[in-house]
Structure formats: structure tokens, C-alpha cells
């Protein structure tokens, strides 16, 4: 295909390039700043001298993080919740999206089921009832308190449901003629051809679990805080309106931004690693998802 490069498209391209570069810089610069802080000497950080490059390079913040037991406990907790939570999310999404993707004549009262799920997207009991529910189920301070309340991701179901609908009906028909039931059709036909969508859902779910902090604070004891909850408790803002002078004094003494930055960076690394790994599935999934003539 030949691209016509008129003045108009050139201006558009230039404009596009500038906007995208700025957006990109807007995302990257704060990140680079935190990286620089984490490698800088305390005095330089407190003096606000660190911009985009470390000043008085040091590895001390990372040495400190390595020895900080609480950080690694929280890290382990998050790994556990991601492993259990993301697995559970993806399995439930797949087995729910499959029947809901069928037309109304194959699944009776389909609309009702859809509305039941959709309803939970719009309304929820609120913080206190949720808390009481989790408490009465004796889930408090267990990994299940972090995993079960959000186990069914309705948004992800809608995503996958729409993808399943795009799967040609011929594939399903062929499977049924060969004697497969719904279960086998789902796992051996639908899932393999839907890998791109499933990879997306997995990614959402992993990142969601990795970043969640509020439920950790509400449901867990400090010794079982997941990583992000732990991080928010150390990166806390000074708010003198709600803080006694005693507390302000204690925090001022502990305030060390290079150590906080180092912990944030270490916490980001696993997620950064997951992205390229899942990318592989996007590509192969697209290749698989075709009807061969």
C-alpha cells in the first residue's frame, strides 16, 4: 500500500508524534525520578537536588530494603494472592463467559443471568456490610479475604463473552458432531482459539491483584499486609490536621524518601516482567484464532 504524503498528513503525523512523545514523557519522567531518588544519597534527596539522574550514587537504600523483613513478608503475601487470585479469576471468567455467550435459545433465561451479573457491577453493599460479611465468614486476615470478594470479574466476563461470540459457530458444530460435550468444547476449542482475550483477562487480573491495597488494609493484620498496602503505610503523607504532634514527630524521624523509592521500584519489577511474557500469547493467539478452510 502506498501512503500519500500530502502536507496535511505530514502535519498530522508531526502533531501526532509530538502529542505521543509528550504523553510518553509524562508517564516515564515520574518513574525515572523515583528510580533516581532510590539511588541517591539522603542529603541530596532531602535537598531536592535529585531530578532525573541520581546524585551521589549509592546502593544503601537497596541494601536496607534487602534486610527489611516486613517488606519481603508483604511481597510474599502479594505473590500468594496473585497466584491464587488470578488463577481463580481466570477460571471463573472462562466457565461463566462460555454459557453466557450462547444465544437465548440454547441457554434458558440467559437475560436474567446476565442481569444478575450486571447488577453487581452497578451496586454493592458498601464498605461496612462487606466488612461484616467477610468477618462473619471468618475470612478476616486470610488470603481468601483478598481473593474471594472479587473472584468474579464481571467486566472481564463481558470481555471474554464477546470474544467467544466471534468464534465461528462451525467450530462448535464440528466439535459436537465429533461427539464432544460442552465441557470439552470449551476447554479444547474455545479456550485455545481465544488465547489473546484470555491473556488480556489474565493480565488485568494479575495487575489488579498486584496493585490492590485498600482491601488489604481493611481485612488484614499488619503482619499479613500485601505489598501495596504496606507501601501506602510507609509512603504516607503528612497531614497535620489529623495528626498529633507526637505522630508527626515520629514520622519526621523516619522519613527517608530514598528508601521509600527503592521499595516502590522493587515492587514494580515483577509486573514489568509479566508484560513481555504475556505478549507472546497475544501473537500466537491471533495466529491460532482462524478457521482453516
Amino acid at each position: 500500500m502506498h501512503v500519500h504524503s500530502t502536507t496535511g498528513t505530514r502535519i498530522f503525523n508531526l502533531f501526532n508524534l509530538i502529542v505521543l512523545t509528550l504523553t510518553c514523557a509524562g508517564c516515564l519522567i515520574p518513574f525515572i525520578h523515583i528510580v533516581s531518588l532510590s539511588f541517591s544519597d539522603k542529603a541530596a534527596v532531602m535537598g531536592g537536588l535529585v531530578k532525573l539522574w541520581p546524585v551521589h550514587f549509592t546502593l544503601d537504600p537497596y541494601r536496607y530494603v534487602l534486610e527489611r523483613g516486613a517488606f519481603w513478608h508483604a511481597f510474599g503475601m502479594t505473590l500468594e494472592r496473585v497466584a491464587i487470585g488470578a488463577t481463580l479469576n481466570v477460571v471463573l471468567v472462562i466457565i461463566l463467559a462460555y454459557p453466557l455467550s450462547k444465544a437465548g435459545d440454547k441457554l434458558r433465561m440467559r437475560t436474567l443471568y446476565v442481569w444478575i451479573f450486571f447488577f453487581t457491577m452497578l451496586f454493592n453493599g458498601g464498605l461496612i456490610p462487606n466488612y461484616i460479611l467477610v468477618k462473619e465468614l471468618h475470612l478476616l486476615d486470610t488470603v481468601w479475604a483478598l481473593v474471594l470478594p472479587g473472584a468474579v470479574g464481571v467486566f472481564n466476563i463481558v470481555l471474554l463473552l464477546n470474544f467467544f461470540r466471534e468464534v465461528p459457530a462451525e467450530l462448535e458444530d464440528a466439535a459436537f458432531i465429533d461427539g464432544a460435550g460442552h465441557w470439552r468444547t470449551l476447554w479444547q476449542i474455545y479456550v485455545p482459539v481465544s488465547l489473546p482475550a484470555i491473556a488480556t483477562v489474565t493480565l488485568f487480573s494479575i495487575v489488579g491483584h498486584w496493585n490492590a491495597w485498600f482491601d488489604g488494609m481493611i481485612y488484614m493484620k499488619v503482619s499479613h499486609y500485601p505489598l501495596q498496602t504496606y507501601l501506602q503505610s510507609i509512603v504516607i503523607k503528612f497531614d497535620f490536621n489529623t495528626m498529633s504532634p507526637e505522630e508527626a514527630k515520629r514520622l519526621a524521624k523516619l522519613n527517608d524518601r530514598s528508601i521509600k523509592s527503592a521499595q516502590m521500584i522493587v515492587a514494580v519489577i515483577p509486573v514489568l516482567l509479566v508484560y513481555p511474557y504475556l505478549q507472546k500469547y497475544f501473537v500466537s493467539g491471533i495466529r491460532l484464532g482462524s478457521v482453516k478452510g
Binding site: 542529603a43 532531602m46 535537598g47 531536592g48 537536588l49 508527626a248 514527630k249 519526621a252 524521624k253 522519613n255
Partner: peptide, 30 residues
């Protein structure tokens, strides 16, 4: 942020509680 000006050696005077000593003590490094 205010303490950044102090610690980097740009600020001459400020009002504050006694424990800000833990911040301004770093000024001599800069």
C-alpha cells in the same frame, strides 16, 4: 518541599517545630 530549600542551602530562616532538626541537619552535607 519547604525543607528541600533549607537542606539544599537556599533558605535562611523558617518557623517550625524542634524536630525539623532531623531535616536541616543534612544541610551541611550540601
Amino acid at each position: 518541599k519547604e525543607m528541600e530549600s533549607a537542606v539544599s542551602g537556599k533558605l535562611g530562616m523558617f518557623y517550625g517545630p524542634h524536630w525539623l532538626a532531623y531535616s536541616v541537619e543534612k544541610t551541611s552535607d550540601n
